[in-house]
Amino acid sequence: MRRAGFVVAAATALTLGAAGTGRAETTATSEVTASWGDRVRLQYTWTDRQTITGGTLTVTDATCDDRTVYATLTVTTGAGRTVPLGDRHNTGGCGTTAEYRDITASDPSGVVRLTLRLCHPAPGGATATCETRYIGANPYRPQALPF
């Protein structure tokens, strides 16, 4: 399966929905490392076919190479659109971690999958090097598989 090649370590847990609704939610956690050594941790909750909530992303500069590191998140909607959720940068330098607690997405046509790319600029301001390190399929949309 292609997905296994993208995920260095991932765990999925089933949790009970808030406010006693009895609705099941699925929380996904992924910790990945780029080939050049920087790291990212992503945790978020699939609440239903249309929504991702409660997302936290941490971006760690582990290479100490005087280059920033950033994560790019996108979702693919049920209508086939790719929607950027934005870049989250760590500009703190060697050994630092930047944390973002603003990862959410919703679309009336549904959210099929969430994709995470880890990037860092090339020396001299050239085009950034990026790797797709995680693709998470919505468990409420089984037609999202295979990739």
Rank of each mutant, 00 (worst) to 15 (best):
M1S: 09
M1C: 09
R2E: 10
R2M: 10
R3C: 14
R3H: 13
A4L: 14
A9E: 12
A10K: 15
A10L: 12
A11H: 08
A11V: 04
L14Q: 03
L14W: 00
L14M: 04
T15W: 03
L16F: 01
G17Q: 04
G17R: 05
A19M: 06
T21A: 05
E25N: 08
A28Y: 07
V32E: 13
V32Y: 04
V32T: 12
T33D: 03
W36K: 10
D38N: 15
D38L: 12
R39L: 14
R39H: 12
V40W: 01
V40R: 05
R41D: 04
R41A: 14
Q43D: 05
Y44A: 15
Y44C: 06
Y44N: 10
W46S: 11
T47F: 04
T47Y: 05
R49W: 08
T51W: 01
I52H: 03
T53A: 13
T56Q: 10
T56D: 02
T56L: 07
L57T: 00
T58H: 03
T58V: 03
T58N: 06
V59Q: 04
T60M: 10
T60I: 02
T60A: 15
T60Q: 11
D61K: 11
A62V: 00
T63G: 00
T63S: 07
D65C: 02
D65N: 05
D66V: 00
R67I: 04
V69F: 01
Y70V: 03
Y70H: 13
Y70D: 08
T72I: 07
T74E: 15
T74F: 10
T76C: 03
T77F: 07
T77V: 08
G78R: 09
A79R: 09
A79T: 02
R81T: 04
T82M: 11
T82D: 10
T82N: 12
V83W: 03
P84M: 13
L85V: 11
D87A: 15
R88Q: 09
N90W: 05
N90H: 09
G92F: 08
G93V: 03
G93A: 07
G93Y: 04
G93F: 05
C94V: 01
G95H: 07
G95E: 06
T96S: 14
A98L: 10
A98Q: 10
A98P: 00
A98K: 06
E99I: 06
R101D: 14
D102P: 00
I103Q: 09
I103K: 11
A105E: 12
S106I: 04
S106Q: 11
S106V: 06
S106L: 07
D107Y: 02
D107F: 02
P108F: 01
S109I: 08
G110L: 14
V111I: 15
V112Y: 02
R113D: 14
L114E: 09
L116F: 06
L118E: 09
H120D: 08
H120S: 14
H120I: 01
H120E: 13
A122T: 11
G124I: 04
G124L: 12
G125P: 00
G125A: 13
A126N: 05
A126I: 00
A126S: 08
A128D: 15
T129R: 15
T129W: 08
C130G: 09
C130H: 09
C130E: 11
C130Q: 12
T132K: 12
Y134K: 15
G136F: 00
G136D: 09
A137R: 03
A137D: 07
A137N: 01
R141S: 07
R141L: 12
P142Q: 07
P146I: 02
